[in-house]
């Protein structure tokens, strides 16, 4: 088995062993279920067979949950020193980063898989647009991947989990909302730059069912950037 998969499997296992996975699943499903079906601008209020309300609530819940998943990935290993044991095994720094990234992404995908009953329920209530649903889920996965890679980078910078969490959240906040706000308060080229950088713009167009190669490139480049920087800061290790 490839080293990336071995590490991903072990990390996923430890999410479930340490109850993080169960807490995250319960909270995510609780929040998104409550706001999708029961409260606020829920599906019955909108009165259309669309998962828009779920996508917009998941956009926020995942934003808060991914830093909680990624904060321990590297920071804990650095704190306990196990990183030395891990990196002197027959694995490269890149494989460690990819394995950890994959484990968090798999957990998010498991959480999203539990919301598939929403789709089934809704398809019984009316005609849903399959393309829109697939794009929406794809957008959520891509967004989570972007935030996981940012979180992983934050976790690689420190050996304190709380610092990693807050750092990931504050970097994420720029993409999530601040760039969007800046875009609307500027004009001309700065406005264009900020609106390109804003994650919400890209996510919105995907969740409406529009697949644009620019959106895909945007998400994938954030992921690459995050993973690249994580690997870089892992390689620059020093004796503690």
């Amino acid at each position: 088995m490839n080293a990336v998969l071995i590490i991903a499997k072990k990390e996923l296992q430890s999410y479930f062993d340490s109850l993080i996975a169960y807490i995250m699943l319960v909270l995510f499903l609780g929040f998104s279920g409550f706001f999708t079906w029961l409260y606020g601008s829920d599906i019955f209020m909108v009165g259309q067979a669309t998962l828009q309300s779920f996508f917009s609530i998941a956009y926020w819940t995942l934003f808060f949950f991914t830093p909680a998943l990624t904060m321990r990935l590297l920071a804990e290993e650095k704190k306990t020193g196990t990183i030395e044991m891990l990196l002197t095994k027959a694995v490269s720094d890149r494989q460690v980063v990819l394995g950890k990234f994959l484990s968090a992404l798999m957990l998010v995908m498991i959480a999203l898989a539990f919301t598939l009953p929403y789709v089934i329920t809704l398809s019984k209530l009316g005609n849903i647009d399959a393309g829109e649903v697939i794009c929406g889920y794809g957008g959520l996965v891509l967004m989570s991947a972007a935030y996981i890679s940012i979180g992983l980078y934050a976790s690689s910078l420190t050996n304190n989990q709380i610092v990693a969490f807050l750092l990931a959240l504050s970097i994420g906040l720029f993409f999530h909302i601040i760039f969007d706000v800046l875009a609307s308060s500027f004009t001309g080229i700065p406005a264009q730059v900020f609106s390109t950088l804003s994650l919400s713009n890209h996510f919105e167009s995907m969740s409406r069912g529009v697949v644009d190669s620019r959106d895909l490139i945007y998400f994938i480049s954030i992921v690459f950037m995050g993973l690249f920087l994580s690997e870089l800061s892992l390689t620059k290790r020093n004796l503690n």
């Binding site: 340490s18 990183i83 030395e84």
Partner: peptide, 12 residues
């Protein structure tokens, strides 16, 4: 390799 202070995954 056995590192100094023998770091291990305590929850495994």
């Amino acid at each position: 390799y056995l590192p100094e202070n023998n770091p291990l995954y305590l929850d495994m």
